[in-house]
Amino acid sequence: MTQSPKPNSPFATHTARSVSLRIAGLPGAAIVLSFGLVLSVWALLGAWSEVPDTILPAPWDVWGAALELWYNGSLLTDLGASLGRAGIGFAIGSTLGIGVGLLTGRVAIARVMLGPVLSLLRPIPAIALVPLAIVWFGIGEGSKYFVVSYTVFLAVWFNTHHGMQYLPETYLRAARSLGATPRREFVSVMLPSVAPHILAGVRLGVALSFLSLVAAELSGASSGLGFRLQEARQYIRTDRMFALLIILGALGAAADFVVQRLGAKLVHWEQA
């Protein structure tokens, strides 16, 4: 379990740093222990059980499949294609999400016009959009960008919009009484106030970009990790599926870690 920092620490910067390290993840020992346990159970099952390899491949088979994908060059191509789609879709979606969120959060007419529609669109799962995206944008890159950026947009929009509803009134009053112009009030007070909410939305957006990416690639793609998964199903290469799924998990965790660390630097005052 995590322990809270000493309340009377005279070196508060120190405290803040240890807090961010704690958030970043479990202690290294716990990670090793957790993976070690799962791996050994998996290895035991692989060595002694009668479960066929097409249902549960052994760890060394999965490792072999990963190496195979690496050496025949498809893994690098797939990684490039998938990360490119996730990255571009995420960039478009989060930029629009922040922009529209600030707008609907701040401008009454935008809130009235867009708010209800966006709230209605929010519960639609990404995978349900794939057929429509293919009709609109074809099976090329366009439909992937669309599905990813759409899902990311809604998550980031919602958090930004929500954050704008709860701007601390005293900050705004303090800014006004200290002679801030509306523009400076927006840039120097509202934006930092809402930044923790935006960050929460962006973090969610990163996770969703992988989710929706694979959904988009499962149907109608000629490269990418999702496509390779689908292909592995056709050849009943369960070992490849495991390798690809593990890679997807690791990628998502790594992306979340990076965003979380960058965010903690950016929103350094929010260390609760």
């Binding site: 900050y171 009053r173 303090a174 006004r176 009484s177 002679g179 120097s188 930092p192 350094h268």
Partner: peptide
Amino acid sequence: HGPPPEVGVVFQQYALFPW
């Protein structure tokens, strides 16, 4: 009409900007 420039306010909750 709006916050006048010659008026200063000190709030109970300090209202310091944490960033």
